[in-house]
Simulated scan of single mutants.
Amino acid sequence: MTDHEGTAGPARPGRPARRRRRHVRRHLTELGFGVLALAAIVPLARDALLPQRGSADTGRAKTVISRDMLQNADTGNVCRRGRVALTFDDGPDVYTPQILEVLRAYNVRATFFIMGVKAAARPDLIRAVVAGGHLAENHSWDHPHMADLDAAAVHRQLADTTAAIMRAGAPRPTLFRPPFGNTDGLVDGQARALGLRVVRWSVDTNDWRGRRPADIAATVLGQAVPGSVVLLHDGVANSAATIKALPAIITGLRARGFCTALDTE
């Protein structure tokens, strides 16, 4: 996987104040973009509006997979051109079991970046991830902007998530993906101190935005190169569309000579 390393650097006077100012500036910027975006989409039809990013556990999972989806699953996985890693964020959640079933049918191993609060609530799903041969890694406790936090809060986010994943029966995580990709030297330093390598992604499917399965798959197949790390989600409201996209993603990558593999293989 590609990684993003940084150095925390020595503590400097005034750092908390600077972080608070950066926090305020970022939220003002986001507010400005939000106003512009609202102005742009108001004239659009209701069904064209993008849904709010939210947890999949706000409702019951729809049954997405079918016999037709899985019975002719391609299990061949030859690395003629190189490896592409599939990764899933924000789980485990109500759609995670169906994602695991698709991955099992197609003989894919993936990396799941786990939220600590969800690991504590559903340890059975952590065990299912590990039983499928997948990696259960750290994605913070409750998905904050990590660079807005002080050192103690960053440490809690990381350490408590690692502890919850291990209590569920998974090996100690060695990777940390910062929510929103939001990190800085302090966050990277705290991660390293806990034995975590900070990793991001190279192909962003934006699957959480309410995109259609065909568009999610097309993004992956249009951008994948040897060594790509694909960002998907098993823990958001639109994860049903991600499940529907998976067969096309997997078979399309393999048809292009890519194997779906962990970076540790």
Score class of each variant (00 low, 15 high):
D3V: 09
P10E: 11
A11H: 02
A11T: 05
P13R: 07
G14D: 00
R15T: 03
P16L: 01
R19P: 00
R21N: 03
H23Q: 05
L28H: 10
L36G: 10
L36P: 01
L36R: 14
A37F: 08
A48R: 15
L50Y: 13
Q52C: 02
R53M: 10
A56V: 01
R60P: 15
A61T: 12
S66R: 05
S66Y: 02
R67E: 05
D68E: 15
Q71A: 03
N72I: 00
G76E: 04
R81N: 11
A85S: 15
L86K: 05
D90L: 12
I99K: 04
V102H: 01
V102R: 02
N107A: 09
R109D: 12
A110V: 10
T111N: 09
F113K: 08
I114R: 10
K118T: 01
A120Y: 01
R122Q: 13
A128L: 05
A128G: 01
V129F: 04
A131D: 07
A131L: 00
N138L: 10
S140H: 04
D142G: 11
H143C: 06
P144W: 00
A147T: 00
L149S: 05
D150V: 01
D160H: 08
I165D: 02
R167F: 00
P171G: 11
R172L: 05
T174G: 13
L175Y: 13
N182E: 12
G185N: 07
V187S: 01
D188T: 04
R197V: 15
V198D: 14
S202T: 15
S202D: 06
D204M: 15
R209S: 15
R209G: 14
R209A: 15
R211I: 05
R212N: 13
P213S: 06
I216P: 11
L221N: 08
V229C: 14
N238Y: 04
A241M: 10
I243R: 13
K244W: 08
L246Y: 03
T251Y: 04
T251G: 08
